[in-house]
Amino acid sequence: MKKIETTRWLLYVLIFLSVLLPLIFQINLPITETKVARGVYNLIEDANENANVIISFDYDPSSKPELQPMAVSVIRHCLRRNYNMIFTALWPMGVQMASGAVETVRKDNPHLEYGTQYVNLGYKAGGMVTLQKMGKDLRDVFPADMSGTSIDSLALLDGINSLNDIDFIISLSAGVPGIKEWIMVGHDKYGRSVAGGTTAVTAPNILPYVNDQNQLSGLLGGLKAAAEYEKMTGASGTATAGMDAQSIAHLVIIIFVILGNVRYHINKKRGEE
């Protein structure tokens, strides 16, 4: 029993060190691109000039380490392409996440202007029902932005009345409601291109939508994909910084899984004997 307890603590200490040490001493392990992550990049890169983009912040601080680097990279990319960014949130705390991402981007883009380059419409309850209503009349769902300014006075939203006036949708999602609702309504009902990012836990459930029907144009699943996206856009951020730690920690887990299995089979054999 004492031996198991010691092994447990050894594992905790090793995992902690395998995260801490690579963050202090960067080794810059290679980050390889995947096709699904490239799909997100291509959707944003290939859109028309002055495209109208909805970026939906469907997460809260508990998913910030994974999704915030994606949000920052996506905003930077859209800004570089001179798109009109419309922020919304299907989660209440998504509004603050959007503000935080904008503040990070503003550090290297001090002239980022509210109302002409981006607007934040804030949170709306209702999930799929709200999205269906946005498909018909966006102005009825969001008569004002998050600070109460009438959307009629926001130049960026001139001519945008429903989802049909949106070129593509990016959802950064940690669960329900989130990217799945955007696929169902945004793409499958209104024919808008949808892509986005999810936490690694959610990614296996969403990956099947990146398919022949293009229900999802691409997907960033977890910190690894966030680092891929940073690499594609050429702007390293916290995801890239965390990838060494992620890889080393995975290596430790794999070694312990193998050791655990070897031990299990040795014990089983001894028991049989």
Partner: peptide, 8 residues
């Protein structure tokens, strides 16, 4: 990966 990301 998700749990390690949170630890990171």
């Amino acid at each position: 990966m998700a749990r390690i990301s949170l630890l990171i």
